[in-house]
Design a protein around this nucleic acid. Structure first.
Length: 485
RNA sequence: CGGGGUGUAGCGCAGUUGGCAGCGCACCGCGUUUGGGACGCGGGGGUCGGCGGUUCAAGUCCGCCCACCCCGACCA
């Protein structure tokens, strides 16, 4: 209800994560100016600070895509309705959540157009025109864009009617090559999540019930949020020949035989921003990982008079100049006090704050406050000499520390469960790691009893066999069960 | 779609028995402030969700509609 919202623009403290995690999340996004609600239900406006974060995510991913041989292209937003119907499980999976255009230019359309919920179909159609020979393969295309899915319950960044993402679509001559591509991109996502976003994700294979509509196999990276719930932060799908057959994506091989291609698709969305917020954020607000932070260092000048200002500002400007190459901001607002600025930039998650005042000018020092260590412990005074190197080192330290903190939080909330009672107890506040026979029935029972679903079957397996935690049957894989967003 | 709730200034809310539309924050101006969320004085801002009804008079009473939020089933 609305009374719980509190006064969003005021200087009131955020609700704590322990009090109300979901309210903490919603208010934080708005107060930090990452995003705002649009006039249409379930739609969001990504504000400049949020978009700057997304741009940094995009460039870190995009360079990895380019390094692995992919190129970017753009496919249309509108897709003929009939395209969705060509792949049976695909249409079954997506039809309840389609936005459909039935009128154009004042005329009822001959065939309704759907606003893309994902682009396998339109891209499959185009690939069938472009691919004729084994010499045309592989096709490795990515697109950055937006899609629309008419979700029933929405949350900023995690699940909105429209969201931004990238979707890679590749076509290959052989099954092995397509499977390798699927796994390669999962590795790319894992590398990005761990090394850029400081998210210690678990890469693994989705269960049959959790996999993508139309895929032969789906893989995901799963992240643990600050309330221990799981968030699927990226997916990579092996589509087999399902879409190639539906869209007749065929090529002639070296022996002049007509063959269907093997295709993949993979995506990461603005949901990643939700993962960063809920993994690193604390009761003071956001904590941005330095490598992705829109602002890495904020400099707050401090002075009480025009004389002090004249003393301080030249030093601020000189040091700002020395930090060239880093993403910095000098907060020279005259209308708010330094104390207000400290809280403001902590709310916005800037990893490092530098204070420069008359005492620093006198002593040749600056004050540095680390966002990842709240309070006095995170504050230090360092000499102005060689400031750029010191700042860079500290940003690296913060990046490493965030990953470590997230990893130890995650590890302390993973429980190896041996029996069903232990599983039921564990999933209230943890991820349960257990042997699973792989049956839909056992998965469904856990979901019904506990609301926890299988997250994924981690690529890293202990080996050997065990007994299914639900039914006791022979099991040869371990899986994570968890409540998820 | 089922269950529950809320609509009054940008945000959060009050508005009594039907009788001048208010408060806090935010915003604008001036001044004093500024090393952990400053203060004083002055100001601007309203289709009370919409339509209809009752009444001398409706934010308030009645009817219908709409929107949004929360809880479930679906999902990157």
């Amino acid at each position: 209800n609305q009374s719980i919202m509190g006064s969003i623009m005021s200087t009131d403290k955020l609700p704590t994560r322990a009090e109300n995690f979901s309210e903490w999340y919603n208010q934080l996004i708005q107060r930090a100016e990452l995003a705002d609600y649009a006039p249409v239900r379930g739609c969001m406006v990504v504000r400049p600070y949020g978009w700057a974060l997304w741009e940094n995510i995009q460039s870190a991913l995009d360079s990895r895509f380019k390094k692995t041989g992919h190129v970017n292209a753009a496919f249309p937003l509108l897709i003929p309705m009939s395209f969705l119907e060509k792949e049976k499980s695909h249409v079954e999976g997506f039809s309840p959540e389609l936005a459909v255009v039935t009128v154009g230019g004042g005329e009822k359309l001959e065939e309704p157009l759907v606003v893309r919920p994902t682009s396998e179909t339109i891209i499959g159609y185009m690939y069938s025109k472009w691919i004729k020979s084994y010499r045309d393969l592989p096709v490795l295309i990515n697109q950055w864009g937006n899609v629309v899915r008419w979700e029933m319950r929405t949350r900023l960044f995690l699940r909105t009617l429209e969201f931004y993402w990238q979707e890679g679509h590749t076509a290959h001559a052989t099954q092995a090559e397509a499977e390798a591509e699927t796994r390669r991109m999962l590795d790319v996502y894992t590398d990005f999540a761990v090394n850029e976003a400081a998210l210690p994700v678990v890469p693994g294979r989705k269960s049959e019930t959790e996999k993508f509509a139309g895929a032969v196999a789906s893989y995901s990276i799963e992240a643990m949020m600050g309330d221990t719930k799981a968030l699927q932060a990226g997916t990579s799908h092996f589509l087999g020949q399902n879409f190639a057959k539906a869209f007749e994506i065929q090529y002639l091989d070296e022996t002049n035989q007509l063959q269907h291609c093997w295709t993949t698709s993979w995506g990461v969305s603005t949901r990643m921003i939700g993962a960063i917020i809920m993994t690193h954020g604390d009761d003071q607000g956001l904590v941005m990982p330095p490598r992705l932070a829109p602002i890495q260092v904020v400099i707050v000048p401090i002075f009480r008079s025009d004389e002090e200002k004249a003393l301080v500002m030249p030093v601020v400007e000189r040091i700002a100049g020395e930090l060239e190459g880093l993403r910095i901001k000098v907060d020279d607002r005259a209308e708010v006090t330094p104390g207000f600025k400290f809280n403001d930039w902590e709310l916005r998650g800037v990893p490092l704050r530098m204070e420069i005042g008359p005492k620093d000018v006198e002593k040749g020092s600056v004050a540095l406050a680390r966002r990842d260590i709240p309070g006095r412990d995170g504050k230090s005074f360092v000499p102005q000499e060689n400031i750029a190197a010191q700042v860079k080192d500290m940003l690296e330290t913060i990046q490493t520390n965030l990953l470590q903190k997230a990893r130890s939080f995650r590890d302390s909330h993973m429980v190896d469960v041996k029996d069903y009672a232990a599983l039921q107890e564990a999933v209230a506040n943890n991820w349960a790691y257990a042997w699973w026979c792989g049956s839909k029935e056992c998965e469904a029972k856990v979901k019904e009893d506990t609301k926890a679903t299988t997250r994924n079957i981690p690529l890293e397996q202990p080996g050997g066999n065990g007994k299914c935690v639900v039914c006791g049957a022979e099991a040869h894989e371990k899986v994570y069960f968890a409540r998820a967003y």
